[in-house]
Amino acid sequence: MAELFAQYNYVIVIILMMTGLYTIFASRNLIKKLAGLSVFQTSVFLLYITISKIKGGQPPILLEDKKYGYDEDGYALLDGPISVAAGDASYILPGPGSDVIYSNPLPHVLILTAIVVGVATLAIGLALVVRIREVYHTIEEDEIEAADFIYNLEGTAD
């Protein structure tokens, strides 16, 4: 039990994930399903953010601070740097051995992308619901299926 409290962030992720999935499958209302989908996706954002957090970690931004020092070309001088080659130039990132601990920026960036994807999905989903309501005059799945029952049976277009 204590373990669960110590890792409460993962517990929250799981609760959100299951809430979202349950809402998607249990509700027959199109908007509620989309809400469930959003909650489900949000749990993933939390999962990614939670793995990138490092206790005492700084935002991963290189400040022009005297502490690091720069060489004549403007490269930051650090202890134990990782150098990353890009084209002809190389860039130095803080790495093991440097005295500053940074939070991992990568999952944040990934999740920024995933949030945008989530917004796009939600927007398209809501737009579809608006169109469905205009055509069927309902957003309840059962009523939509009932309205299409005869078409599905005959396999015709209306």
């Binding site: 993933v44 995933a114 999905t121 989903g125 579809l128 069927y136 939509i144 299409d148």
Partner: peptide, 24 residues
């Protein structure tokens, strides 16, 4: 065919669940 709308909606829900599982 108006059923394209509900088909697209179902595809959206299941496709997004699939993509989210993948990203997990």
């Amino acid at each position: 065919d108006r059923r394209a709308l509900s088909a697209a909606y179902n595809y959206l829900i299941l496709g997004s669940i699939g993509a989210t599982f993948f990203v997990i």
